[in-house]
Amino acid sequence: MDMPPFSLAGLRVLLADAGQRRSPVIRLELIRLRCQLVDVIDLVTDPDALGSVLVRQAPELLLIDCEQPTPELLEQLGQAQAQLPRPVLLVAEQMTPAQMRAALAAGVSALQLAGLPPQRLGALLQLALARFEHDQALQRELRLAQTQLAERKLVERARGILMREQGLDEEAAFQRLRQLAMDGGQTLAAVAARLIDADQLLRPR
């Protein structure tokens, strides 16, 4: 089933221009797409401005236009993305495979090489938004899986404590944990963590 395209109308876009002089063309195309250009950063005259402007303007998408992304630019981008991730479209005249990998690692959602045909901007913005949403969903799934794994380990440890201290078998120890969780209106993991803490406090050192 095809997903509907993202709405570009009203999309808050920040343009970081590293001397490619395409900002007037990009501005006109963003107007045609009904996006909102919140600001244009001149990375030539102010190469360290990216992080502070991102915080101040809080755009929904960052568009970087450059000859080649410098390590300093990608470092700034990576720091900003670590604090508050957002879709990033990077337009570059040329990039090495190593630069591409570094750009993706820094949080770039979509790449466009060898210039930016204005008629392609809408599709590229859609691609950046879609890729960002996909990556964020994967991150949420990973965090959920990590949390569930950690909770299972807590429950296993707590069950082992009950088996050792109360002479229960595995099933009886698990049912005891479930009953404690139900009685206290807590999750199994929360009850398990409390039991582990209590066991550590009472165990002779």
Rank of each mutant, 00 (worst) to 15 (best):
Q186S: 12
R101K: 06
I196G: 01
P85S: 15
G107L: 09
A192P: 00
V91A: 14
P4R: 09
R56M: 11
A172S: 11
P5R: 04
A105M: 04
A98P: 00
V40G: 01
A189Q: 05
Q148L: 15
L138M: 12
V91G: 06
L8I: 06
L125D: 07
R32F: 06
L121T: 06
L138Q: 13
Q148R: 15
L54K: 06
V55C: 11
E75S: 13
E151F: 04
D2A: 12
L14V: 09
E75D: 11
V38G: 06
P47Y: 04
A80E: 01
P4D: 02
D42V: 08
P47A: 03
K153Q: 15
F132W: 15
L30Y: 11
L188G: 09
L90A: 11
A193P: 00
R101F: 02
T45S: 14
Q79R: 14
L89A: 00
L30V: 08
V88Y: 02
A103T: 03
D17L: 03
L154G: 03
R120Y: 05
E165Q: 09
G19H: 07
P4S: 13
R152Y: 03
A82M: 03
G78T: 00
D2F: 10
R176D: 08
L116W: 03
T147R: 15
R56Y: 03
I196A: 01
A114Q: 09
D183P: 02
L14Y: 08
L188M: 13
I196P: 03
R131Y: 10
L177V: 10
D169I: 09
M163A: 09
E93Y: 01
A106D: 02
M163T: 04
L113V: 10
L162E: 10
Q126H: 06
L33T: 14
L142T: 04
D39I: 01
Q36T: 13
A172D: 06
Q166S: 11
P87A: 10
A158W: 13
L61F: 12
A181Q: 08
I31C: 06
A190N: 04
L129W: 08
L54Q: 07
L63Y: 13
D135T: 12
F132N: 11
L113I: 10
E170K: 09
Q146N: 00
D135M: 13
S109C: 09
L90V: 11
R203M: 04
L121R: 04
L63G: 08
L28Q: 13
